[in-house]
Design a protein around this nucleic acid. Structure first.
Lengths: 118, 118
DNA sequence: TCCTATACATCGGACTTCGATGTATGTTCG
DNA sequence: CGAACATACATCGAAGTCCGATGTATAGGA
């Protein structure tokens, strides 16, 4: 039993994580729509600025996430050489834009509903 | 490959789910704080009313969730007999109240940050 | 020279969510 | 009367997510 007499510290950390991680896909799509094509590292940097360092997936998570978004056809990726070095850029697709628009409504609704709970 | 030429429908469903499920623990704690002791089924009913049927975990999820909250000491459960029938009630603990208070701040902050993104 | 930042990617482990399945009793309605 | 639905509990397997560790490589600054 690793978690015993937790006094809420681990629990809080975990629940905070749960709250935040649900928005990762939404945020990645948002930043790609807003800033244009970016590579993985730049996406993370962008999210750091956007959220004051708080809504940023780990690197492992981000690459899994991008893979998943690609699988669903919401982003596409292409490789380029920048200064002789390989870079993989991501671009939001038309399908991605549509999904993002719906997600914005969802987030809006969520905010209203949570406002009632608070 | 089950997901191919998705055109965004499955993706949207999945991303919506991700957005919502992060709030389940928060909502369960909220409803227990607000309504007092409840059993599993009543928690689900309560969330249905609170969220117009939209922020409601499946039964399987709810029982897993309650188990997890219990493990962290955020809720405690006790068995009662109501009309000759077994019922398991859940109650938020002091630790749970403290964590919930912090989560409320978190949600508040999240709403503000997302407001900027929208 | 060493550390940090940039940049990519994979892997295992822990955990979550869902839907299916199973067990019961109570109520309602045709 | 009998079927269907609501109430109520719980478990299981499958799929997926997130993290942190690990690994590779270059550039630039202290």
């Amino acid at each position: 039993m690793p978690v015993f007499r937790d006094n809420g510290k681990n629990a809080l950390k975990k629940l905070r994580k749960d709250l935040r991680s649900g928005f990762y896909s939404f945020l990645v799509l948002s930043i790609l729509e807003r800033e244009g094509d970016l590579h993985g590292y730049a996406i993370r940097k962008g999210l750091e600025i956007l959220s004051e360092g708080k809504l940023v997936p780990s690197e492992g998570t981000l690459y899994d996430l991008l893979k998943s978004l690609r699988k669903y056809g919401l982003v596409e990726d292409f490789q380029t050489e920048v200064g002789g070095r390989f870079r993989r850029y991501y671009r939001i697709t038309d399908s991605g834009r549509k999904v993002l628009a719906e997600l914005k409504n969802e987030v809006q609704w969520l905010m209203e509903t949570l406002g009632k709970v608070l």
